[in-house]
Design a protein around this nucleic acid. Structure first.
Lengths: 141, 141
DNA sequence: CTTTTTGCAAAACCTTTGCACAACC
DNA sequence: GGTTGTGCAAAGGTTTTGCAAAAAG
């Protein structure tokens, strides 16, 4: 089934350009708040619908972190890694060389087809370190 | 704050031994169904509470896959990898050498402390391949 | 007897959806 | 004019929680 046509909508355009200005991988809720000034009546449902459409169109990426249980969205669809702070839940880009060779490594002893992987890193971000936050015991692996 | 005392409970013991018999990483719902025969009145809340307690005690592991949105539980707490079938959602163990060196690799250019990572693989499992399921476009990375 | 656990039901949480109306082309 | 998008509110699915009664130590 082909992707259905996408008509222009001011809301969707605004969502996309809002995302473009942010490097902090906002949630739907944050996008919603950010658009409230321009669209006082916009609804959270509309934000979710548009975010999902943009994801399906490959124009943005949906980031899912089990630890957080909330979806985050990224204007940058190029392959890169993410870090999630165990203290403040900030999502930060991680400059890092490609790790796609782990797919082949995983496929070596597996009976089935491996098409991809999901990966993210956890720990404490600089901001929280500066506040003297001690290391929590989560996300060790 | 120390971990509070755990009194024995028949339900918790049954949950743990149920999990011990399964290699398919069941969900809370499946554990619940599996115990219904022995405990006709057990409640899902009790299952969740006990699973979380066992996780905190380090006796089992909670597996979270963004794609699925449902927690799975694993009796095997030793570090190993998992594969999630994009077709049938089966969760399968992946025999694979250690990849913990990627933490150091990620830490190289990052200002903060990396304590761990979350990783899983996606694709199509043997069972679905045998049914002639075509590859879907999800989870490529 | 004190503390922890249970079952139940309600709530919390994030996300999706049905519908009537508006916007787009 | 036909189709897609919006706003609203309601529902969905998973997990957590408050509470009185039961079990454990």
């Amino acid at each position: 089934m082909a992707v259905k046509a996408m008509k222009y909508s001011r809301q969707r355009a605004a969502i996309l350009s809002f995302l473009k200005t942010r490097k902090d991988h906002p949630t739907a809720e944050i996008v919603y708040s950010g658009l409230k000034e321009e669209f006082p009546n916009i609804s959270l449902g509309t934000v979710y619908r548009n975010l999902n459409q943009l994801v399906e169109a490959g124009m943005i990426a949906k980031l899912q972190f089990g630890d957080l249980g909330i979806d985050h969205f990224d204007y940058d669809t190029a392959s890169h890694q993410h870090f999630v702070c165990s203290e403040c839940s900030a999502v930060i880009d991680l400059p890092m060389e490609n790790v796609s060779q782990i797919n082949e490594q995983a496929a070596k002893d597996f009976d089935g087809i491996i098409t991809g992987h999901k990966l993210y890193f956890c720990g404490i971000c600089r901001q929280c370190l500066d506040k003297g936050i001690p290391l929590k015991g989560t996300c060790e692996k």
